[in-house]
Every structure is written in C-alpha cells, then in structure tokens.
Amino acid sequence: MKINTTLPSHYLAYVKSIPLLQKRTGKKRTTQKQSLHPFWAIVQKEVSDHIGSWRFIILLAMITLICFGSLYIAVNNLPEALANAKDPNRDFVFLKLLSASDGTLPPFHILLGFLGPLLGIGMGFDAVNSEQNSGTLVRLMAQPIHRDYFINAKFTGALMVIGTLFMALSFLITGLGILVTGQMPMPEEFLRIIGFIILCIIYVAFWLNLSILFSVKFKRAATSALTAIAVWLFFTIFYQILVGMAAKALVSPGLSRTGYRVQKLLVTLLDIAPNRLFTDATTTILVPSVRSLGPLSIQQMQGAIPSTLSLGDSLMVVWPQLTGLIAATVACFAFSYYLFMRKEIRS
C-alpha cells in the first residue's frame, strides 16, 4: 500500500513514520521499532503546531506579562505581610507570592481563573472543523489510522503544552522567590504549589475539551469560537447575577436576605460554575488558613482558633471542587469523543 502523497506536508512527514505503513512498504522490523506510533506522531505534530502558532504566542505573552505583574505586586507587599503577627499564613512565604495582592491587580490564581479559559478556548476551538474544512481530515482518515487516534491526539497535544506552560510559570515564580527572599520553600509549600499546578491544568483542560466539543459540533471555526466565548462570559459575569436574583426569589419573604439559609443557597448554586470551583480550590490550597468554603453557623464558629490546616486537611476541604472539575472535564471529552466517532467527515 502506497502512502497518500496528497496529504499536506506537515502531516505527510509524520504519516511516513507510522509503523503500519512501514510494514506494508517492506521496511525492516528494526526500523518499525524505532518509528513513532500513529497516535504519538499526530501528538508531536499538534505540539509543534501549537508552539509555532501566533495564537499561542500571543496568549503566552499575555499570561506571562500578567504573571510577572502579579509577582511584582506580591514581592512589594511581602515584607508587610510577613510582619503581620496575627496572620496565620505568614510562614508560607512562597504561597504568598501566588496569593498576595494590594488591590492593584488580583492575585495570580484569580487572574488565571479569568484568563485560563481563553488559553483553552484558543487552543481547541478549531481543532476539528478547520481540518475538515481544509480537507486534511478526510485524507488523513484515508490512511491506516484509527479515528480515535485523531481526537485523542488533539486533546493530548494541547494538554502537554498547557501542562508545560503552567509548570514553567509556577517554577519560575518559585525560583524568583528564592532569589528575592533567600529562603528555600518548605516541603509542604512545594507540595501545595504542585497541587496548584494540577488544578490549573485540570481547569484549562475543561475549557479545552469544551472548545473541542464545539469544534466537532459546528462546521465553522468562528461559530465554535463564539459559542465557547459566550459560555465563558456567561459563567464569569452573568451567572452570578442570575444566581443572586434566583436566590432572592426562592427565599420566603419572612426570612432575612442575609441569613444562613440564603448564603447556603447562594454558595450551592454558585458552585456549579467552573470558575468558582477553580477559585475556591486554589484559594484553599494556597491559603492554608482557609477552613471552610461555605457559610458557617454560630454554633460551628464557637471555639474556632485561627490556625493553618495541613495539606491533607486542605485537600479534604477542596475534594468536592476537585471532583467537580474532573467530572466536568471528563464529561466534555467523552461527549466530544462520542460525537466525533459518529461524525460524517466526508461531507
């Protein structure tokens, strides 16, 4: 079987390395073992496309600029924060670099909760429909490649780039913190920073899967991009307004609007939003003194002493938010996988 030479050059270079094609063209077995698997060949192509695209470079520059802006503000306010004897988190110097702010800019984790979805949407809104519109998808599927390799490689390649980006930014901030403070992070601080990185990757992966889902569903890339941005704006701006209006309408007239039940209802409804789940989880990981994410009654607050929680206790607090983000990410990917496997790609 001959290789389809009508493929674009950036795909043809990787398809030539597929073991199955080499086997059918009479290559030696030793060469087959050294060649790339079809899945990893497409992943490698996706990673190189993302890194070399102007879209990713612009998003990377924007996130990096805001990252260093937040870091500059956090470093300037670090001496004042460490001098506060009443602050139970004053010993966690490196966590304050990611969570401290003077009000000029939000903390780093809050800014990531706002800008992270743009990174995921920008890397996935045209993952499938652009390949189909250009005719590349039909010619690629004509090769001896399983269809699920394509959709899985699209997600894996983008996720590898996202994971590398957040790991590099977080470790860069940690390294600059070592140079500024002259201290080394404690083991618990390092583990909390790793947990923060994992939360960032899961959060952006949700928006990546959502944009890939719209890319499979809609034929035009502009439609999928606008739909994904509309969902992001809805949960970021309008959802809180609608929840506040609904909570006031559902509460009985005789109950105070600032009561415990009203606040509990608001927290329950707001926890549906992915950005709220991410903000609550990262705040608990980066601020060890956070003991609860919902309103507390007077009975629950009696006898409470301001102190920090261990990493295990903080993970217990954020476990519902973490499982919610993972479930939403898996659900979006499963739905996009199902639609792509049943999609007619020849039209």
Rank of each mutant, 00 (worst) to 15 (best):
T268P: 02
M186S: 14
I18C: 12
K23W: 12
A142W: 01
T25V: 11
A127T: 06
V47W: 08
Q240F: 15
Y203K: 13
K2M: 09
A13W: 10
M186Q: 10
S347T: 10
R257M: 05
A74W: 00
K248C: 05
R29M: 13
R24W: 14
H146W: 06
N209T: 11
N152A: 01
R257P: 02
Q44H: 13
Y14F: 15
G177L: 07
E80K: 13
Y337Q: 04
Y14E: 12
A228E: 05
D102S: 12
M301A: 05
M167A: 07
R139D: 06
P185N: 02
A222L: 07
A81I: 08
G195F: 08
L115H: 08
Y239D: 09
L265S: 13
R90S: 04
A13I: 12
P274V: 11
V317Q: 03
V43W: 00
P253V: 03
Q300M: 09
M167N: 04
K45P: 01
S347P: 01
A168V: 10
L311I: 14
A127W: 00
F155V: 06
L296P: 01
M167H: 01
L7A: 04
Q132H: 04
L266W: 09
M186G: 12
A247S: 15
H37Y: 10
A83H: 04
N76F: 03
N84M: 11
P79S: 04
F150K: 00
A153D: 01
T279P: 00
A327E: 11
S347L: 08
T236K: 14
L325W: 13
I18F: 15
T227R: 01
W40C: 02
Y337I: 00
L7D: 02
G324Q: 12
K16G: 04
A331T: 15
L250Y: 03
F278K: 10
L7P: 01
L339M: 04
D148C: 01
K217T: 04
